[in-house]
């Protein structure tokens, strides 16, 4: 960021935060974020409700965003709704929807302590004694997310339609495959399986859309306390089981396969936390369906990310490799379809 930009940002934040004076240390770009750019801001604030040292994150668009993700303004509204519902999210503080500060839309939120590094959460042995508590806490967090229901006044930009969430996803997948240049018979096969096995559930709540290691921040120095649920860019009205399937799918366990919930912990702990917070159960028996849907969804996203690199719009090592990763998810799709068919044959 250039000095002139930093000064514009300082004056804007002064106004937004009701400060007399605000000074920023040189902003540093944070790693990660294939879709958005995150900047680390350290503000010294004089006067107003935020006086003192204020650690912040500024979030803005990456060079080529994914068309299916939300605008910064919508993301800010989602963050506010989640904050109000008691989800542990970084408090959203200021929004520039028109891009008058940085010439592209941006917002600023508090910076949470800890790390979102998936390797820490899924693999760090120091966390092992705390895993049941962390997993239960994540169940509670997700239940709070799902306490937000259609009709919420500030979330009317999220589309709702008559199809069940599972049916809507299946239709979206077909359209997303059609947008790719090559044919993908393995994913088509997986989609047919989804078509025949979709639950009838019409339960709808706010789905986070990317609830997994990498977007969940914990503080290893504080017994793995959950400090933030990040990245609301894929939120939608969905079946609450979709988020559960996403975090439980093998492709998001980061190698810790025996811990079903994202490589973090056991399903029993997660369910206990969820039910204690929500006061009701979900259709837990439909989890294999939602894990399959998650695996197919990640394979399609991976192919689209590879395509973004190929298109030349955003040259990136990470996007290029993610494109090649799709075959790994496809392998699991085939293996799981077989496993489920074999288990059914054995039971009958």
């Amino acid at each position: 960021m250039e000095q002139a930009e930093i000064e514009v940002l300082e004056r804007w934040l002064e106004g937004e935060l009701g400060a007399d004076f605000l000074r920023l240390a040189p902003p540093a770009k944070m790693s990660g974020g294939a879709v958005q750019e995150n900047w680390r801001l350290d503000a010294e604030v004089t006067g107003g409700p935020h006086a003192g040292s204020l650690p912040l994150v500024l979030r803005t668009d990456a060079p080529s965003g994914v068309s299916i993700s939300h605008s910064r303004a919508h993301e800010f509204a989602l963050l506010k709704a989640a904050f109000a519902a008691g989800v542990t999210v970084p408090e959203p503080l200021a929004l520039d929807a028109d891009g008058k500060v940085l010439r592209k839309p941006a917002y600023v939120m508090r910076r949470a302590a800890g790390t979102a590094n998936p390797r820490t959460l899924a693999r760090d042995a120091d966390l092992d004694p705390h895993r049941p508590a962390i997993t239960e806490a994540l169940g509670r967090e997700l239940a709070r997310v799902h306490s937000i229901k259609p009709g919420h006044a500030d979330l009317d930009f999220l589309p709702l339609d008559e199809r069940s969430p599972a049916r809507r996803r299946i239709d979206e997948f077909a359209a997303q495959l059609d947008a790719l240049p090559d044919a993908h018979p393995v994913l088509e096969y997986g989609i047919r399986w989804l078509h025949h096995n979709a639950p009838d559930s019409q339960m709808t709540a706010l789905g986070h859309g990317d609830f997994r290691c990498g977007n969940l921040m914990i503080d290893p120095a504080d017994q793995g306390r959950v400090t933030a649920v990040l990245d609301w860019e894929f939120a939608s009205w969905s079946d609450p089981m979709e988020d559960v399937g996403w975090i439980c799918a093998r492709c998001w366990r980061f190698g810790a396969d025996d811990r079903q919930v994202g490589g973090i912990g056991n399903l029993e702990d997660f369910i206990r936390g969820y039910e204690a917070e929500a006061g009701h159960a979900l259709e837990w028996e439909s989890l294999p369906f939602w894990e399959m849907l998650a695996t197919i969804r990640w394979a399609i996203i991976a192919r689209h990310q590879g395509q973004r690199h190929l298109s030349g719009k955003e040259i990136s090592m990470e996007l290029a490799l993610t494109g090649r990763k799709a075959a790994e998810m496809e392998y699991d799709v085939l293996a799981q379809i077989r496993q489920i068919a074999d288990a059914k044959a054995e039971a009958s």
Binding site: G32, A34, A116, P118, G214, C251, G255, T322, K325
Partner: peptide, 10 residues
Amino acid sequence: ESEYSQPSRG
């Protein structure tokens, strides 16, 4: 080993 590639998107 059925092991997903690392590093992957984080």
